[in-house]
Structure formats: structure tokens, C-alpha cells
Amino acid sequence: MSESLAITKFSDLANPTRFLGLAARIIPWLGCLTAVLFGVGLYLSFTTQGDYQQGSTVRIMYVHVPAAWLSMMCYSVMALSAIGTLVWRHPLADVSHKAAAPLGAAFTLIALATGALWGKPMWGTWWVWDARLTSVFILFLMYLGLIALNRALDDPSRGARLSAVLILVGFVNIPIIKFSVEWWNTLHQPASVMRLDGPTIDNEFLIPLLVMAFAFTFLFFTLHLMAMRNEIWRRRVTAQRRMAARMAGREL
């Protein structure tokens, strides 16, 4: 019984008007939660001690790691939505993965920028072709390609299904890309590069890191809901404009 109830709830959400009502109720709460978490997280990350090895630059980790985590989670959310689009033809899934692409690109950009700023004092260069940095960079390129595709397709529902296919193909490829980049890296990289994942993380760093990770995650969900709402509104505006034009044409 509970399963069928969950399914009805889920398909209830397919009604965009109901989704808009729910979003309007949830978004302020999520926004407040995000702000509080960011407040606590930022306070913690600036009051804890620096690492003996990396000095105070370890604080960059509190922005860098959550952004990198989100850049991957966002793609997973998009892949789930893509399955929703192709398998269940869920109308909100279309909206969801289209709205998530720019967010994912932005978080990936944060991860890249803070990674470069962390690398400069630690490794002495802005960029190393390290396996992890490189795969995040490829992910960034994939996000940008998807955004470009979304912008180039004008029919929203057909476009959503096409980009869903591409998201899924990309999602299947991500492990292969990751594996091959690691292979390539061990082949070319001199072994002297300092690894960041040295000793296991101390509790002192773990707590601010977790708080910041939650803050970023909630920020993503807030923005995602808002972007989905915008996308629904945008489709309504175009649909109504088209209808108005049709009516005007009939009067003539």
C-alpha cells in the first residue's frame, strides 16, 4: 500500500501547478536553512586551526571539496532526471535536468577556480594535469556542451529528450574517462607531485567540511527548485504568447 501511495504522490508532482505550490512553500525554508548552515560553516572554517603541513591554506578545502562533490552530485541528479524523462516521460524531469545544467557548470567552475588557487601555494603552479583536476575539467566541458545543446534546441519537450540521451551516454562514460585519465596520469606524471590525500582527515577539519558540504548541497537544492520554477514559468509564457498570437490571428 505504501508503495502505491508513494507512486501517487510522485505522479501528483507531475502536475506543474501542484509543484509550483509546493516549491513556493519549501523554497523560503530551504533558503533560510542554507543561510544558517553557511553562517555556521564559515564561522567554523575560519576559527579552526590550520594544518601543520599545509598551513592555513587548508581552509580552501572547505570551499573546494564541497564544490567538487556538488559538481558530481549535480550530474547524478541530471542523469536520474534523464531516466525520468526517457522512461516515465515525467514532465518535471525535463525541467529538472535542463535547470540543473547551469548550476552544475557553476559549481564545477568554483571547484576548478579554488583548486587552482590551492595549487599555486601548494604545488607552485596554477594548474597541474593531475588526474582529478583533469577529469573535473572534462566534466566542465561536458556541462558546457549540454548547455549549448539546450540553447540550440527550440522545441522544449523534444529537446529535453535529446539532451537526456546525451546526459545518459555521458554518465555511462564518466567512469571510463576517469579510469583512462588516471592511466594517462600515471604514465606521464613525475612521481614528485604532492598528494593531497595524505593522512586521514582529522575531526577538527571534518566537522567544518561536513557543515560546508551540507550548506552547499542545500544551496544547490534551493537554486535547483527556483530554476525549475523559472523554467516552468518560461514555458507557460511562451505557450500563452503562442495562444494569444493564434487568437489574434483568428480575429483578423
Binding site: 591554506t57 580552501i60 573546494h64 548550476l103 568554483i110
Partner: peptide
Amino acid sequence: YIALSYGSAAVIVALLIGWVW
């Protein structure tokens, strides 16, 4: 570097929020 990285992250997040809003 810390200030720059927090600053750049803040700018990107602010741009994102501003765009969505």
C-alpha cells in the same frame, strides 16, 4: 590565496543566485 578563493567562490555563487532570482 584563501581570500581570493573564498572571494571567487562567493562571486560565482552570487552571480548564480542573482541570475536565478
